[in-house]
Amino acid sequence: MSTLILVLFLLLGTYFVAVIEEWSVTGRLRPAGPVRAALRLLGTESVLARKPDRLFFEVAPVLLLVAAILSLAIIPLAPGLIVTDLATGALFFNAALAYVLVALIMGGWGPDGAYAMIGGWRFLGQLIGYAMLVVMPITAVAMRSESLSTVVIVQSQEQLWNILYQPLGFVLFALAGMAMAFVPPFDLPTGAGDLAGGVEAEYTGVRRLVFRLGRMVLILSVASAMTVFYLGGWLGPVLPGWAWSAIKILVVTALMLAAGRALPRVREASFLAWCWKLGIPLALVNIFLVGVLVLVVPL
């Protein structure tokens, strides 16, 4: 039963993310859009470049999808409604999403095209910026919950959500999460006006469909992680837990994608500089503040 619910969550979640994503680009809400686009891609030729690293080219979209789905496995939607409640859940989330980088590098290198390759390497630069800002705030979250298990992390927020307990960590994690899902304004590897699609540029047809699916699941996964780590996951009055999870995840997704609509794409050089000169010191400050709070105010 719970497996069915989780599969349904995955499908519906991906669908809603796709609808919101299209809205963030075109400004229109078209419920049939994702279905049509998926069918169109299914029926379009999937071109293979002339002399590609074919293995890389084939593996990249699949790896992206698998990594994103695996990272969703540790997201609890309600008590008991989780695929695997790993003791190292928060760490596993990171581990799975580290392979997004590998997928993008493979997809960028594979077709032997300039736009794609530059996009892939750019994402490596982006990761060097955001990675610490994902793991350091998670550490601070774990300090409060005394566990890396996502279920315990949600339970630890019973009295006060982490967004209020450690707002600094939330801001850092939210920005880093957006960079991790390469949504605008951090869409350096796939920027449209910048690299004409970048890593996605050479993917057509069904391979592109898998790539896009992976992308949507990735956005869903990052939004879910924000919900679980900072917004109290399933916690909320009146409505059942899964409903709260769904509402929060959708709202976070919409906010995340709406922010990208209003901001210009960042420059890689300044992104790296901001992350290292401001982000990491702030993340360390956050750890210290949470450390003091945990000892002084045992909420």
Binding site: S24, V25, T26, G27, P184, P185, D187, G191, A192, G193, D194, G260, R261, A262, L263, P264, R265
Partner: peptide, 10 residues
């Protein structure tokens, strides 16, 4: 379009 500002673009 180049800077990724779809709202401004449209």
């Amino acid at each position: 379009r180049q800077l990724g500002l779809p709202r401004i673009e449209s």
